[in-house]
């Protein structure tokens, strides 16, 4: 084995130290992660998404997502120019195994839209939880406390994006954690790590060196259902108006 730590240490020192401690079986010794220094979100670059389903599979593997439920999924849109507001959408098995090939439509367009929890700053789901079992962390991630959740499913009803479900075995609300167990150790999320085209990128809005700031300044970026005023932190570049 040709071990060269130098390359790695220059690239991402925190990740390296974190991984070392993960390897040693002591993740709690990873570099002091300060919640107040981060404000997490995600950037989704729609023109880059190829609908391969890698993110869906990676998420399911990383997080043991139960069959038939999705913490992230991919939708394929077909919008015709004579019916802009009524797209045809499919997401077979959440796009886990990709999509059937489609032929060019001279009167329409096709594109993919990856979806996940928007980790809203003003999230309607945490608002309605009767006991405080779901909440937004000081670093901006909406989490569910599986040891405290009643499983009443009120939050499932309150999410405008359909990102929550009741875990069939645990009988509690379940959803994307933005791979909180990874991002607090300097790694990126499983979906971003495995996206082959860089269509998904984890962003830290509190980090002044994060390329997201430059990106937001230079692109037309949108969030999903802005009329819901949820303060969504998943930003979409090149989002079509028909996407819902």
């Amino acid at each position: 084995m040709n071990i060269s730590r130098r390359h790695l240490l220059i690239l991402l020192p925190t990740a390296a130290v974190a991984w070392k401690s993960v390897l040693a079986g002591t993740p709690e010794e990873s570099p002091n992660y300060k919640m107040t220094e981060h404000w997490w979100g995600m950037l989704i670059d729609i023109p880059k998404c190829i609908g391969c389903g890698n993110c869906v599979r990676a998420c399911a593997t990383e997080n043991n997502v139960p069959e038939g439920h999705f913490r992230t999924w991919v939708e394929q849109y077909h919008v015709t120019d004579w019916n802009l507001t009524n797209p045809e959408v499919i997401s077979p098995d959440g796009g886990k195994e990709g999509f059937p090939a489609v032929k060019e439509d001279p009167n329409g367009k096709y594109f993919f839209v990856p979806k996940l929890c928007n980790h809203c700053a003003d999230s309607p789901c945490t608002q309605v939880c009767p006991v405080g079992a779901t909440f937004i962390t000081p670093d901006g991630v909406v989490l569910v406390d599986p040891k405290y959740c009643l499983g009443c499913a009120y939050c499932v009803q309150a999410c405008p994006y359909g990102c929550r479900y009741i875990h069939p075995e645990k009988r509690v609300a379940d959803k994307c954690t933005l791979c909180y167990h990874r991002i607090t150790k300097g790694l990126t999320t499983a979906c971003c790590e495995n996206c082959p085209t860089g269509a998904r990128q984890l962003v830290d809005l509190k980090n002044p060196n994060d390329p997201i700031h430059e990106f937001l300044r230079t692109h037309s970026v949108q969030i999903l259902k802005p009329q819901m005023a949820t303060g969504a932190k998943v930003f979409y570049n090149g989002l079509d108006g028909s996407v819902r």
């Binding site: 993960v22 992660y33 593997t61 990383e62 909180y180 167990h181 150790k185 790694l187 790590e193 495995n194």
Partner: peptide
């Protein structure tokens, strides 16, 4: 939640 095991 932060202490959950990493697969990737």
């Amino acid at each position: 939640i932060a202490a959950l095991p990493i697969k990737y």
